[in-house]
């Protein structure tokens, strides 16, 4: 390989190394700035990613969609589910379809399971990254607040009421914005602890 070709190829490779993360940053920033905001109910738990660190994994009500019992969905299939907002102000998903709907926002989802009338999907957001010391603390606070909010409920009752996330959606692309526990952003809630 001649020196000129080598330097040209190296410049191209280095440019690509910059382009990939830069494109992700551009898309994420544009979605956060111009996307429509939705709230999704969730329940956080605290696991670890070997490369990106500690996060709270999020389990969403919206990831279980009521569908026609006769409808066929293939496991692993990627579809688009239109977003609707309920009377409670939280977002829900309509039965997914191929391609983006003509009107309104939608999320790109992956079919996980189909159980006669209920469809389990993976949403394009499933975690909220936090400082390695704060993530377990966030989960702990969530559990305490949940007990305080629902003192009469059984231990195995659905604990999703006090937590939700805000998500910005733009042209079918979604970026998680903030995790709220008991109505407060998680970082502010942790900072307010004695």
């Amino acid at each position: 390989m001649t020196a000129r070709w080598m330097w040209g190829a190296l410049a191209l490779v280095f440019a690509l190394h910059w382009t990939v993360p830069a494109a992700l940053i551009q898309r994420g920033t544009a979605t956060l700035e111009r996307g429509t905001q939705y709230r999704f109910r969730t329940a956080p738990v605290d696991p670890v990613d070997p490369f990106r660190g500690r996060y709270v994994a999020l389990d969403f009500d919206a990831a279980r969609i009521a569908v026609n019992a006769q409808a066929e969905y293939a496991e692993g299939e990627t579809l688009y589910a239109a977003i609707t907002v309920g009377d409670d102000g939280f977002a829900h998903l309509l039965p997914p379809q191929h391609g983006l709907p003509k009107t309104g926002d939608a999320l790109k989802v992956t079919v996980l399971w189909n159980n006669e009338g209920e469809l389990g999907v993976a949403l394009p957001f499933d975690r909220y990254y936090l400082d390695e010391a704060l993530a377990p603390e966030a989960e702990q606070i969530y559990r305490e607040r949940n007990r305080r909010v629902n003192p009469d409920e059984a231990d195995d009752a659905d604990p999703r009421r006090p937590a939700y996330v805000t998500v910005r959606v733009l042209d079918g692309y979604a970026v998680l914005e903030q995790l709220y526990i008991d109505g407060m952003p998680v970082r502010a809630l942790i900072d307010s602890q004695p």
Binding site: P21, L24, G28, L32, F51, R52, R127, Y129, L176
Partner: peptide, 18 residues
């Protein structure tokens, strides 16, 4: 490059996709 991609994913809370 791996660290840059990981940090961008962390900042924007991208899903798992290991």
């Amino acid at each position: 490059f791996a660290a840059a991609l990981a940090l961008v994913g962390q900042i924007f809370h991208f899903p798992g996709d290991l």
